[in-house]
């Protein structure tokens, strides 16, 4: 994994902790198949808005609303893949 790809993953994990209040130890156990949207009670639509805005802020990217759907938020892996595509152009 490149250093940049690693930074994106670290950032995503810390944003999940900071925005959703999930303990870092639990976020550290998330792997690519860990379900997110629909499975984490903390992750409602307001939280999704906060999560995306914080990710944009920290990585200097812009996420358009029409790119946000259930599939992209389905698992830790799918969200990480989406953000990496945006951040590592």
């Amino acid at each position: 994994m490149s250093q940049d790809a690693e930074i994106v993953e670290t950032t995503l994990r810390s944003v999940l902790t900071d925005v959703l209040g999930i303990p870092p130890a639990r976020v550290a156990t998330f792997d690519s198949l860990t379900p997110l949207f629909g499975s984490l009670p903390e992750l409602d639509s307001m939280a999704v808005a906060g999560l995306l805005t914080e990710i944009e802020d920290r990585l200097g990217i812009v996420v358009e609303d029409d790119e946000v759907d259930g599939e992209m938020m389905e698992t830790f892996g799918s969200l990480l893949h989406f953000i990496r595509t945006k951040a590592l152009l």
């Binding site: 950032t11 810390s14 902790t17 900071d18 925005v19 959703l20 209040g21 903390e42 992750l43 409602d44 307001m46 939280a47 906060g50 999560l51 805005t53 914080e54 802020d57 920290r58 200097g60």
Partner: peptide
């Protein structure tokens, strides 16, 4: 964790983003 310019950096969580 905030990469933007600052006069001082504090340790803590962005409570303004918290879902709860």
């Amino acid at each position: 964790e905030d990469g933007k310019n600052a006069d001082e950096r504090l340790t803590g969580s962005p409570l303004w983003r918290r879902a709860e």
